[in-house]
Amino acid sequence: MSLLLQLVANGLLLGGAFAIISIGLTLIFGVVRVVNFAHGEFLMVGMYVAWLCASRLGLHPYAAVPIVVVFLFVMGAAMQRYVIQSLLSADAHIQVFATVGISTALLNLALLMFGADIRKVEFAFGNQNLSIGSLTFVSGQVITFVVAIVVAFAMHFYLTRTYTGRAFRALAQNRTAAALMGVDVNKTYVFAFGIGAALVGIASCLLTLQYPVFPTVGTYFVLTAFVIVVLGGMGSLPGAVIGSMFIGLIDSLAGFYVGPDLKEVVYFVIFLVILIVRPTGLFGLGRGSE
């Protein structure tokens, strides 16, 4: 029983890490309507920046959050401004190729600059073991989870209470009508893309403490993030959070009961079933994938 509880707790905590990555992805898709295949490489870049801050400046990754967030915001905004913007009315396959191209370029650039070695940061804070009853946690996981929940709520308030947030939602529903209501489409898209990337920046600082940094680290996380976002309904914020917890649980439970090398098969199969049977996502939120 305590084993099961521990597995559930691990799953939810892992879900917290997935959530911050997925919120950024779903925001970009929801507003700009572009599936960002380079999202995982954003995470990878963020992790390398956090690692550089730690190894060169001795900064704790949590303290590096502002630097990484600004770095990724600029990167995301630049990608929207200089690549995606001119492709907004192009065919879907052109947009896919554009983000895939950026993903390939960034991944290999990291390989060129840092090699394939696995990098790690060593800090005590964030790696303490906590225990509640028979359950044990790593403090970094708990912090990640809490930050994820805070970010999700902050994002929710941002989207519902501020002008820019409302502009995001208006654009998500109808680009032309939003433009007629005075929303500066291009500027808002650049901003949305930047924020989506900045969220990944937060995630990368939190994850650098718990995971090693290597060029293909993003691929692992982003495939999971895609599963989550499709599961929760592309473009839906609550869907992304609930989906993250769900996949976190599956990861933890299937890893134990099915086998660590097959846990991903389990959630990819779930992903395919959702895509095929219910393309609007489990919770009926967001727009369909058809």
Partner: peptide
């Protein structure tokens, strides 16, 4: 180091998409 040809592929792909889709 490694990754040179992959980097070339990525850059070429983005350039193609932007300039002659």
């Amino acid at each position: 180091g490694n990754g040179t040809h992959g980097f070339v592929y990525g850059v070429v792909l983005v350039a193609v998409v932007l300039f002659f889709p």
